[in-house]
């Protein structure tokens, strides 16, 4: 009889191979399981969030061998290390006291940077096996659903967002320095002539190639139907459609366009926006307002000059960063 001891049992062979197959399957499958969600979409989310945060809350930084600072917008040819848009009053310190307030100069300079510098500095790429894969991106600042226009350029960077791909988007609310504003108080505006107390005057020296915004507040109401009627420039009436826009801001924060029938209360602020292209001559213009049932200052007051009371004007807007693969 043949001695068949020492042969491998068929049961054992089957068992061990089953076990090995299961083991190999598990080892291959488990790591893939946790990668599925986070690796692809997640990194897009982080990129969008990071880019928006740096732009809104950081001032940026530039540096060469001898000096450095946060005013990278004035050194476009030097090495820009970080791009940030937050306003900064001290370019030598690395901190800013004003996150969420965006500088006009920095934003305009951002539009002038070349594509390569931008993706590199903002980190809008993914590194796979030492190769750069740039993300598609769209960075914009919008107001009333339209891109904000600074220095005649809409703030819009990157490509159009594709509809057939998954993107990651983050929106931040910011105050953007869009220009300047002159804030006048009713009693400091002289009337046009004696007995014409409803017609105050303001001087503006041209040429001005951008929108001009004026605020008038503290109205001294004298009659039952106080309102705004007309705006004249050097005696000629301006058109409410094509030349200027007038609106009032109530103390409770509501904003309302005022036409010739709108009523004004003594604690309202009335804002006038004179459109670009109206005040382009090298001369001193005189604005004559026509109100009703509101009294302004005496004729003896000097006519205030728009340029003397200018302060920076900030407008709320949305900064949106959208990225995709």
């Amino acid at each position: 009889m043949v001695d068949d001891r020492g042969q491998i049992a068929i049961d054992f062979l089957l068992g061990i191979s089953l076990f090995l197959i299961a083991l190999i399957f598990t080892v291959q499958f488990i790591p893939g399981m946790s990668m599925a969600g986070s690796a692809r979409e997640g990194s897009l989310d982080y990129t969008a969030y990071r880019t928006a945060t740096i732009l809104v809350e950081d001032t940026g930084w530039w540096g060469n061998n001898t000096s450095s600072g946060t005013d990278w917008e004035s050194h476009p040819t030097d090495n820009i290390e970080r791009i940030g848009l937050a306003v900064d009053d001290d370019p030598t310190s690395r901190l800013t006291n004003s996150p969420n307030i965006l500088s006009k100069n920095k934003t305009t300079q951002l539009m002038l940077l070349n594509e390569n510098d931008l993706t590199e500095t903002l980190g809008l790429y993914n590194q796979v096996d030492n190769t750069h894969f740039s993300y598609g991106y769209n960075i914009s600042i919008t107001k009333n659903n339209a891109p904000l226009v600074l220095n005649n350029t809409p703030v819009l960077l990157g490509e159009t967002v594709p509809y057939d791909r998954e993107t990651s988007k983050i929106t931040r609310i910011v105050l953007v320095e869009t220009g300047t504003i002159a804030d006048f108080s009713g009693e400091e505006l002289p009337m046009k002539a004696a007995n014409q107390e409803e017609y105050p005057l303001i001087d503006i020296t041209g040429p001005l190639n951008e929108e001009v915004t004026l605020y008038i507040s503290n109205f001294n109401i004298t009659g039952g139907d106080p309102g705004f009627k007309k705006l004249r420039l050097d005696g000629a009436p301006l058109s409410e459609v094509s030349d200027y826009l007038a609106y009032k801001i109530s103390p409770n924060g509501t904003i309302e366009i005022i036409g010739t029938t709108g009523k004004i209360d003594n604690d309202d602020v009335v804002a006038f926006v004179i459109y670009q292209g109206i005040l382009t001559g090298s001369q001193t213009y005189q604005l004559e307002f026509q109100f009703k049932d509101i009294e302004f200052g005496p004729t003896s007051l000097p006519v205030p000059e728009y340029q003397d009371v200018l302060t920076t004007y900030y407008e709320p807007a949305y900064l949106t960063v959208e990225v995709w693969n």
């Binding site: 996150p99 969420n100 105050l175 602020v269 302060t311 900030y314 709320p316």
Partner: peptide, 15 residues
Amino acid sequence: LKVIDIAPQTSIIRN
């Protein structure tokens, strides 16, 4: 909240 907090007087946000 941050934007309302830092809003200057001469902006659409009055207070």
